[in-house]
């Protein structure tokens, strides 16, 4: 928690410097949070091109809001609030084509998606690929808010209080969302153990 508090102060301080016109501080914030924002949005919309486009919009909004920025919450809470808002809007508007749709369109001419180097055999690779697809589909099947809560909890390691502020609900509502989401995922993915 101490480390998180220091990180909060540092990010907020950087953002206050951006507010004063320091472009270098914006570059530092971008490098620090770029990957987590893109990966979060990617797992939300399951389309890399759309995820990068939305992540660009996230950082543009951060930049545009610099003059009115006030460090009333953790910087990451604010950042993920913007990211979640954009991702949920994108899902609602159906602007993105989700990964599962692309899977359905896959033909025999197209090569299967490949995992990185550690593939001792084609069979094992196919098993791993099938399991990965199952993970993606299981996450995609969650209602959008549950999905956002799981991704922030599991991958971004945000605290319940932060997730609550991002999703604009109470901490107990977040715990309930997570419980229901994990219940669904346990039913679909626990066999992989």
């Amino acid at each position: 928690m101490g480390g998180a508090a220091v990180a909060l102060d540092y990010d907020a301080e950087l953002m206050l410097r951006v507010k004063e016109g320091d472009g270098a501080s914006f570059a530092v914030l971008l490098e620090k949070h770029r990957s987590s924002v893109i990966h979060f949005v990617y797992r939300m919309v399951q389309n890399q091109a759309v995820a990068e486009e939305l992540a660009q919009e996230v950082f543009l909004r951060v930049y545009r809001s610099r003059s009115t920025y006030e460090p009333t919450a953790k910087f990451t809470t604010w950042l993920f609030r913007i990211a979640t808002h954009l991702a949920l809007n994108s899902l609602r508007d159906g602007k993105n084509q989700r990964y599962e749709d692309r899977l359905d369109e896959q033909t025999e001419d197209q090569p299967a998606r490949q995992l990185a180097d550690r593939r001792p055999s084609v069979e094992q690779s196919m098993v791993l690929e099938a399991r990965l697809d199952e993970v993606r589909r299981a996450v995609a099947s969650l209602p959008a808010k549950q999905r956002a809560a799981v991704l922030m909890h599991k991958y971004e390691e945000l605290e319940y209080s932060q997730i609550a502020r991002v999703l604009n609900c109470s901490e107990s509502a977040v715990k309930s969302l997570l419980f229901r989401a994990y219940e669904t995922l346990r039913a679909r993915l626990a066999y992989m153990a």
């Binding site: 990068e52 299981a138 996450v139 995922l185 993915l189 626990a190 066999y191 153990a193």
Partner: peptide, 22 residues
Amino acid sequence: ERQQAVWEALDRWRPEPISPDF
């Protein structure tokens, strides 16, 4: 055990590489 299996399954989901010109 089942909850930990879920997290292990989720750990397998590596993100895509980010475009170099982002």
